[in-house]
Simulated assay, not measured.
Amino acid sequence: MPDIRILVMRDEGADPALPLPDYQTAGAAGADLRADLAGRDLTLEPGDVKLVPTGLRVEIPHGFEMQVRPRSGLALKYGVTVANAPGTVDSDYRGPLGVILVNLGREPFVIAHGERIAQAVIAPVVQARYVMAETLSESDRASGGFGSTGRS
Protein backbone atom coordinates (compact mmCIF):
# COMPACT_ATOMS: atom_id res chain seq x y z
CA MET A 1 0.00 0.00 0.00
CA PRO A 2 1.47 3.41 -0.94
CA ASP A 3 2.45 5.85 1.79
CA ILE A 4 0.29 8.88 0.96
CA ARG A 5 0.68 11.69 3.48
CA ILE A 6 -1.92 14.36 4.06
CA LEU A 7 -0.38 17.35 5.80
CA VAL A 8 -2.74 18.82 8.40
CA MET A 9 -2.78 22.12 10.28
CA ARG A 10 -5.26 23.37 12.85
CA ASP A 11 -7.11 26.63 12.30
CA GLU A 12 -6.47 29.39 14.80
CA GLY A 13 -8.69 28.69 17.81
CA ALA A 14 -9.26 25.05 16.88
CA ASP A 15 -9.45 22.49 19.66
CA PRO A 16 -6.02 20.80 19.89
CA ALA A 17 -7.54 17.94 21.89
CA LEU A 18 -9.58 16.69 18.93
CA PRO A 19 -7.97 13.79 17.08
CA LEU A 20 -6.78 14.21 13.51
CA PRO A 21 -8.86 12.35 10.92
CA ASP A 22 -8.46 8.66 11.62
CA TYR A 23 -9.58 5.27 10.36
CA GLN A 24 -11.73 3.28 12.78
CA THR A 25 -10.76 -0.13 11.36
CA ALA A 26 -7.88 -1.58 9.35
CA GLY A 27 -10.14 -1.98 6.30
CA ALA A 28 -11.86 1.40 6.46
CA ALA A 29 -11.79 3.46 3.25
CA GLY A 30 -12.65 6.73 4.98
CA ALA A 31 -11.01 8.58 7.85
CA ASP A 32 -13.50 10.20 10.21
CA LEU A 33 -13.79 13.99 10.29
CA ARG A 34 -14.93 15.61 13.53
CA ALA A 35 -16.93 18.74 14.26
CA ASP A 36 -14.88 21.50 15.91
CA LEU A 37 -17.57 23.68 17.47
CA ALA A 38 -15.52 25.59 20.06
CA GLY A 39 -16.91 23.37 22.81
CA ARG A 40 -20.56 24.05 21.94
CA ASP A 41 -23.24 21.95 20.31
CA LEU A 42 -24.90 22.77 16.97
CA THR A 43 -28.51 21.88 16.19
CA LEU A 44 -29.58 20.96 12.67
CA GLU A 45 -33.31 21.42 12.40
CA PRO A 46 -35.17 19.32 9.80
CA GLY A 47 -34.34 20.78 6.39
CA ASP A 48 -31.35 22.78 7.67
CA VAL A 49 -28.13 22.92 5.66
CA LYS A 50 -25.09 24.14 7.60
CA LEU A 51 -21.35 24.32 7.10
CA VAL A 52 -19.81 22.49 10.06
CA PRO A 53 -16.17 23.37 10.77
CA THR A 54 -13.55 20.71 11.42
CA GLY A 55 -10.91 23.17 12.65
CA LEU A 56 -8.48 21.76 10.09
CA ARG A 57 -6.68 22.73 6.90
CA VAL A 58 -5.12 20.07 4.70
CA GLU A 59 -2.55 19.73 1.95
CA ILE A 60 -3.46 16.93 -0.41
CA PRO A 61 -0.74 15.68 -2.78
CA HIS A 62 -1.03 16.70 -6.45
CA GLY A 63 -2.87 13.99 -8.38
CA PHE A 64 -5.26 13.24 -5.49
CA GLU A 65 -8.45 14.63 -4.03
CA MET A 66 -10.20 14.30 -0.69
CA GLN A 67 -13.78 13.12 -1.06
CA VAL A 68 -15.98 14.15 1.88
CA ARG A 69 -18.66 11.51 2.27
CA PRO A 70 -21.55 10.88 4.67
CA ARG A 71 -21.32 8.54 7.61
CA SER A 72 -23.83 5.78 6.91
CA GLY A 73 -25.02 5.53 10.52
CA LEU A 74 -25.94 9.24 10.68
CA ALA A 75 -27.75 8.96 7.36
CA LEU A 76 -29.71 5.82 8.26
CA LYS A 77 -30.57 6.60 11.88
CA TYR A 78 -31.10 10.38 11.71
CA GLY A 79 -31.32 11.42 8.05
CA VAL A 80 -28.15 13.54 8.40
CA THR A 81 -25.93 13.46 5.35
CA VAL A 82 -23.41 15.47 3.36
CA ALA A 83 -25.40 17.87 1.15
CA ASN A 84 -22.94 17.85 -1.74
CA ALA A 85 -21.92 14.21 -1.39
CA PRO A 86 -19.27 13.51 -2.19
CA GLY A 87 -17.75 16.89 -1.57
CA THR A 88 -14.39 17.38 -3.24
CA VAL A 89 -11.35 19.02 -1.68
CA ASP A 90 -8.86 19.77 -4.43
CA SER A 91 -5.12 19.36 -4.04
CA ASP A 92 -4.53 23.11 -4.39
CA TYR A 93 -7.07 24.18 -1.71
CA ARG A 94 -5.56 25.36 1.59
CA GLY A 95 -8.56 26.96 3.30
CA PRO A 96 -10.61 25.76 6.25
CA LEU A 97 -12.04 22.25 5.89
CA GLY A 98 -15.77 22.31 6.50
CA VAL A 99 -18.51 19.75 5.97
CA ILE A 100 -21.86 20.79 4.47
CA LEU A 101 -24.43 18.78 6.43
CA VAL A 102 -28.16 18.58 5.78
CA ASN A 103 -30.83 17.15 8.05
CA LEU A 104 -33.25 15.19 5.88
CA GLY A 105 -34.83 13.65 8.97
CA ARG A 106 -37.99 14.63 10.83
CA GLU A 107 -36.36 15.56 14.13
CA PRO A 108 -33.74 18.13 15.13
CA PHE A 109 -30.25 16.63 15.25
CA VAL A 110 -27.71 17.91 17.77
CA ILE A 111 -24.07 17.75 16.67
CA ALA A 112 -21.76 17.61 19.67
CA HIS A 113 -18.32 19.19 19.69
CA GLY A 114 -15.87 16.48 18.59
CA GLU A 115 -18.53 14.25 17.06
CA ARG A 116 -17.62 12.27 13.94
CA ILE A 117 -19.68 13.93 11.19
CA ALA A 118 -18.29 12.68 7.86
CA GLN A 119 -15.49 10.64 6.38
CA ALA A 120 -12.62 11.62 4.12
CA VAL A 121 -11.58 9.29 1.30
CA ILE A 122 -8.36 10.05 -0.57
CA ALA A 123 -8.66 9.17 -4.26
CA PRO A 124 -6.50 9.58 -7.37
CA VAL A 125 -7.53 12.21 -9.91
CA VAL A 126 -7.06 12.16 -13.66
CA GLN A 127 -7.48 15.41 -15.56
CA ALA A 128 -8.86 14.81 -19.04
CA ARG A 129 -8.60 17.02 -22.10
CA TYR A 130 -12.02 17.95 -23.52
CA VAL A 131 -12.13 18.10 -27.32
CA MET A 132 -15.04 19.30 -29.49
CA ALA A 133 -16.27 16.56 -31.90
CA GLU A 134 -18.67 16.43 -34.85
CA THR A 135 -20.03 12.99 -33.88
CA LEU A 136 -19.80 10.48 -31.04
CA SER A 137 -19.34 6.71 -31.42
CA GLU A 138 -22.37 4.42 -31.29
CA SER A 139 -23.15 2.37 -28.18
CA ASP A 140 -25.82 -0.14 -27.13
CA ARG A 141 -27.19 2.31 -24.56
CA ALA A 142 -27.15 5.35 -26.87
CA SER A 143 -28.94 8.25 -25.15
CA GLY A 144 -30.90 6.12 -22.67
CA GLY A 145 -30.55 7.32 -19.10
CA PHE A 146 -32.42 8.11 -15.89
CA GLY A 147 -33.75 4.59 -15.31
CA SER A 148 -33.80 3.47 -18.94
CA THR A 149 -32.26 0.10 -18.00
CA GLY A 150 -35.08 -0.74 -15.55
CA ARG A 151 -35.25 -1.46 -11.81
CA SER A 152 -34.24 -5.09 -11.37
Rank of each mutant, 00 (worst) to 15 (best):
residue 3 D to V: 10
residue 12 E to L: 09
residue 13 G to T: 05
residue 16 P to Q: 07
residue 17 A to D: 12
residue 18 L to C: 09
residue 18 L to H: 08
residue 21 P to M: 07
residue 22 D to C: 03
residue 26 A to M: 08
residue 26 A to P: 00
residue 27 G to W: 11
residue 31 A to L: 07
residue 32 D to M: 06
residue 34 R to Y: 09
residue 35 A to L: 11
residue 36 D to Y: 13
residue 38 A to G: 11
residue 39 G to N: 05
residue 41 D to Y: 04
residue 41 D to P: 02
residue 42 L to Q: 10
residue 44 L to T: 12
residue 47 G to P: 03
residue 49 V to E: 10
residue 50 K to Q: 13
residue 51 L to R: 15
residue 51 L to W: 05
residue 51 L to Y: 06
residue 52 V to W: 09
residue 53 P to C: 14
residue 53 P to G: 12
residue 53 P to W: 09
residue 53 P to V: 15
residue 56 L to Y: 03
residue 57 R to E: 02
residue 57 R to A: 06
residue 58 V to S: 11
residue 59 E to T: 14
residue 59 E to G: 06
residue 61 P to I: 15
residue 63 G to V: 03
residue 63 G to I: 02
residue 65 E to W: 08
residue 66 M to F: 06
residue 67 Q to A: 15
residue 69 R to C: 05
residue 73 G to I: 03
residue 73 G to Q: 08
residue 74 L to C: 03
residue 74 L to K: 04
residue 76 L to P: 00
residue 78 Y to W: 11
residue 78 Y to R: 13
residue 79 G to S: 07
residue 80 V to A: 04
residue 82 V to N: 04
residue 82 V to E: 03
residue 83 A to D: 00
residue 83 A to T: 00
residue 83 A to E: 07
residue 85 A to V: 02
residue 85 A to R: 01
residue 86 P to K: 03
residue 88 T to S: 13
residue 89 V to N: 06
residue 89 V to T: 10
residue 91 S to C: 12
residue 91 S to A: 14
residue 92 D to W: 07
residue 92 D to T: 11
residue 93 Y to L: 13
residue 94 R to I: 09
residue 98 G to P: 00
residue 98 G to L: 07
residue 99 V to Y: 07
residue 99 V to E: 12
residue 100 I to E: 10
residue 104 L to A: 10
residue 105 G to W: 02
residue 108 P to M: 09
residue 108 P to C: 07
residue 109 F to M: 01
residue 113 H to P: 01
residue 116 R to L: 02
residue 116 R to T: 00
residue 117 I to D: 12
residue 118 A to N: 06
residue 118 A to C: 07
residue 119 Q to Y: 05
residue 120 A to P: 03
residue 121 V to Y: 09
residue 125 V to M: 13
residue 128 A to P: 00
residue 130 Y to L: 15
residue 130 Y to H: 12
residue 133 A to T: 14
residue 139 S to P: 11
residue 141 R to E: 01
residue 142 A to T: 00
residue 145 G to P: 00
residue 148 S to H: 14
residue 149 T to M: 14
residue 149 T to S: 15
residue 149 T to Y: 12
residue 150 G to D: 14
residue 150 G to V: 04
residue 151 R to G: 01
residue 152 S to F: 15
residue 152 S to E: 15
